[in-house]
Design a protein around this nucleic acid. Structure first.
Lengths: 159, 159
DNA sequence: CTAATTGGTCAATAAAGTTGACAATTAGAT
DNA sequence: ATCTAATTGTCAACTTTATTGACCAATTAG
């Protein structure tokens, strides 16, 4: 059995570990880009908030953060607080239902989101070079299937 | 444009978000399996330690945990402390170099690891049913490429 | 017009990670 | 054989992040 065709290193690494480490590549790249651009006070989950908010144009309801980050509403409120204090977000009440809060990116927030997106796209591009568009498409579909599995109607936490 | 062939929901979800949520499917399943089997005191990163240790037979050096979890050596030490206290791990000093520490699964640790692995495999099997072996293989390769990108020689943190 | 539900806040606390200082062990150079 | 120097991990103090429980305000259902 020759060295040159030994099985790849990831052969018996379990999928959740691969997912974790793969995401870390993005995480490190995005964090470093933000740091270098002077946005060095974004809290851990802030990456997700800022990145996620970038695409939803009209602002994101707090409840959505709670569900997607899988944290308590108090933690979500505190996270938003921090991001508002540090100038990345602005709160707004939903005029339809004045209990509801939505958050939007501030000027500074949009700048940070842009830096983060650039870093992400750089990784995307490099990956595209390595594995090609088809594999990326299949990977995305596979990940989506996995996500759908976790969204069975009974999975929502009560709080 | 008909409803039935609208673009899939994940179309413009960025890859790091897909990775995050996909991993959450595993995380939730594994956590729930552990809870239901009575192993309800495993700390957050403990999932990774226990799952990762399951395969490395001889025990894992502490330094490896530090690098893979990307936490400080102090945090790693504390995590191991907790897992030892709660009966999942056992410490052992490397006789070659008595500074070095390795951890191995205790009896209880192995039982927890088995429960966790079963949950993981159940998700694996379900995924296999949905997307097929080929897509999983390509996904694994793609993730591995992404991980390799993040392991450039200059990426190791100093501490 | 109550009563229940939903959406969020406040306060206290717990959990997890960080930094800084230091002890023990090993390695490298005299 | 030491005498540095580097590696590996611990201790202690502190910061950050998230949780629980009690509560208030706005909305919706009877």
């Amino acid at each position: 059995m020759s060295e040159s065709e030994s099985k790849p290193w990831y052969e018996d690494v379990v999928l959740p570990a691969l997912l974790r480490h793969a995401r870390t590549t993005y995480g490190v790249a995005m964090r470093r880009a933000l740091d270098e651009a002077g946005y060095d006070d974004v809290p851990k989950n802030g990456l997700y908030v800022i990145g996620g908010l970038a695409m939803g144009a009209g602002g994101v309801p707090l409840g959505q953060l709670i569900r997607e980050l899988r944290i308590s509403k108090q933690a979500a409120g505190q996270l938003v607080d921090t991001l508002v204090t540090r100038g990345y977000l602005e709160r707004a009440v939903d005029p339809e239902d004045r209990r509801k809060l939505t958050v939007t990116l501030s000027e500074r927030g949009r700048a940070a989101a842009a830096a983060q997106a650039a870093a992400r796209e750089k990784v995307d591009a490099e990956l595209l070079d390595i594995v090609g568009a088809d594999d990326i498409q299949r990977t995305r579909r596979t990940l989506a299937a996995l996500i759908d599995m976790g969204n069975a109607p009974d999975e929502q936490p009560d709080d």
